[in-house]
Design a protein around this nucleic acid. Structure first.
Length: 591
DNA sequence: TGAAAGATGAATGGTCAG
DNA sequence: CTGACCATTCATCTTTCA
């Protein structure tokens, strides 16, 4: 896999001084001036040099000219190439778009203008303009902006295929989108619970970290070799290419022949570490296209938990796990309301045809709602008039009400939520959490049986246990799923903003007599490369990075701020990606 | 002051008749 | 293929009450 290969690590010269300083801090004293410089100095053959710089993404003709001029003086070649690349971007682009293809990234240290550039570059570039215009025209016909097309040609060279150019444009768009969402002020107020960045310095630090990873995972290798869905599926938020499967069964269900038995993951997606990302399936248009693009172009696996339990839960999962030889958790949970709650059978009216519940959400109906239903049914004969039936059924479906007496419906209790979701009884009970927050935490959680089915392939692969980085860990759905699979948890680093949720996981950890380490972090935005490096050096490499980022701004239930991935909470998806890519960088470097 | 209750639609996708 | 109709949705904000 090339993202962690040796020649992936010598690219520090891309970085500005600030980035290099950051890298030195992350790398620690042992690696100061180490691998990066030595690789450059070791590259003594010219073809090797050319390949080396081509691999960084510079246009071939520029590389050839630079090598011709400077021989084997790698520093001089690189300096020239950086100047070239830097001057290809306008000052405004430098400031506003730390694009991973911008090559020179953080710009303060390189402020020479075009007139300072080596003359040969400027003169010889002009020869190619007419040819370039033709290609630009073709790309414009394909629906790209001329400006984007021009920039892509400059990055990839005139010899690049249209597919490569389209790929490059898409990568640039993605980085820009990322920048829009992540590195500039999110739509938040001053007292927004810490979602906004704390300081300019911190922002620069994060940008610096991110810049490195974007370069690695996008420009250097991943993109061009990624398995795309063809040239006509150039993703555009207006034209989402991902559609939800019907039935929503993912790659296959337990006890049936797998619908998908093998899949080709893009090189950049292949672990270690394994990762598993979750969010609501019914997100605004384009959201899953963006998620998939960021997560190495992996096709999401959309699964409705109604095939695993008595309640629906339509979710999308992006992961790089194997998909053969999955097995379900035992015992197999009931899949109908009547099996899950046998006592309801006696009172269940024939005209209520429900056999399964809708999605368990974060709120339940009020007592007034169930009382209104009781009164409505009590005041009419048997069976009730059609209108009454429709009213009652609508309310029952909306609020997931079950029949607990004659004319009497009720909300699900928190422990019934726990049971339906696959958690142990009383998992969220006690420890200072109130009823409202129990519903909220449970409504935001994994369905254990569904997730465990996907994770089951890890059991044989990790007979000695796993190190897990659990992001947005909530009430510990990932940990419970792995534990129920019988996978030993050696070290779990859990990142969760809510104190009561952290306490729930801590309590479960102690109750189940876990022998590994449980390490808490509060704020994913505060989790830095330094800390990850320290964790990995202390506890070993992460085997699995798992988490579902907030759905608040994606779910249809949200009437107020369904803002998509740019929303205040849901934009934390980009932190999931940031952490994932950082861990891949660190683990790749240490391998 | 904290917990619970009550009011608040729209976006999205599926189905089906024409 | 298109449009009408229908069902579903990891929620938020304000008010009420103990």
């Amino acid at each position: 896999m090339d993202w962690n290969s040796d020649d992936d690590d010598e690219n520090t010269s891309w970085d500005t001084e600030e980035e290099q300083e950051e890298r030195r801090r992350v790398d620690g004293p042992a690696s100061i001036g180490g691998p990066s410089r030595s690789v450059y100095e070791a590259g003594t053959s010219r073809p090797g040099l050319v390949c080396h710089f081509l691999g960084m993404g510079f246009p071939e003709e520029i590389v050839l000219r630079a090598v011709r001029k400077h021989g084997e003086d790698t520093d001089a070649i690189l300096d020239t190439l950086i100047k070239y690349a830097d001057n290809e971007k306008s000052p405004s682009e430098h400031e506003n778009s730390p694009n991973h293809c911008s090559l020179a990234s953080e710009t303060e240290s390189l402020d020479e203008n075009f007139s300072d550039m080596d003359d040969f570059v400027y003169e010889e570039l002009t020869e190619d303009i007419s040819e370039k215009d033709k290609i630009v025209s073709t790309l414009v016909d394909m629906g790209f902006l001329a400006e984007e097309a021009s920039a892509a040609i400059d990055r990839c060279g005139l010899d690049a295929s249209l597919l490569e150019l389209a790929d490059s444009i898409e990568a640039a768009q993605m980085a820009e989108e990322f920048d829009d969402h992540q590195w500039y002020p999110k739509p938040s107020s001053v007292e927004d619970e810490g979602y906004a960045y704390r300081s300019r310095k911190e922002k620069r630090k994060r940008t610096s970290e991110m810049e490195r990873c974007k370069k690695r995972s996008r420009l250097y290798n991943g993109r061009k070799e990624s398995t795309r869905r063809g040239t006509m599926s150039i993703d555009d938020d207006d034209v989402p290419s991902l559609s939800l499967p019907n039935p929503m069964v993912g790659f296959g269900l337990p006890f049936e022949r797998a619908r998908v038995t093998e899949r080709k993951l893009p090189d950049a997606a292949i672990g270690p570490p394994y990762f598993y990302y979750e969010n609501v399936a019914l997100a605004p248009k384009g959201a899953w296209d963006t998620i998939s693009r960021f997560l190495y172009d992996i096709e999401p696996e959309f699964v409705d938990s109604k095939f695993f339990s008595a309640a629906a839960r339509k979710r999308g999962y992006v992961h790089n796990l194997p998909i053969v030889n999955r097995f379900p958790l035992l015992p197999i949970p009931p899949k109908t309301i009547q099996e899950a709650f046998p006592a309801t059978k006696y009172y269940w009216p024939k005209w209520d045809a429900r056999t399964q519940l809708n999605c368990l959400q974060t709120c339940v109906a009020s007592a007034q709602t169930t009382e209104r239903i009781r009164k409505a049914l009590s005041n009419c004969g048997e069976p009730p008039p059609h209108q009454i039936q429709e009213y009652v059924l609508t309310q029952c479906r909306k609020w997931n009400l079950i029949w607990v007496g004659r004319h009497k419906v009720a909300t699900l209790e928190p422990d019934e939520f726990e049971s339906l979701l696959g958690f142990p009884k009383n998992h969220t009970r006690g420890g200072g959490i109130n009823r409202t927050d129990r519903y909220k935490s449970l409504g935001n959680s994994f369905q254990i049986d569904t997730v465990a089915f996907h994770l089951s392939v890890l059991k044989d692969r990790y007979p000695n246990g796993m190190n897990v980085l659990s992001l947005f860990s909530g009430i510990g759905g990932a940990e419970v799923a792995l534990h129920r699979l019988g996978i030993r948890l050696n070290t779990v680093v859990a990142v969760e903003i809510s104190e009561v949720n952290r306490n729930i996981v801590r309590s479960w950890w102690e109750q189940t007599k876990q022998t590994g380490n449980l390490i808490d972090f509060t704020d994913i935005e505060e989790l830095s490369g330094d800390q990850l490096e320290h964790l990995i050096s202390t506890y070993g490499r992460f085997d699995l990075i798992i988490g579902g980022s907030p759905c608040n701004n994606l779910t249809g239930s949200n009437r107020h701020t369904r803002d998509g991935l740019g929303g205040k909470q849901s934009s934390l998806f980009y932190d999931y990606f940031r952490i994932l890519d950082l861990v891949k960088c660190i683990m790749g470097k240490n391998s």
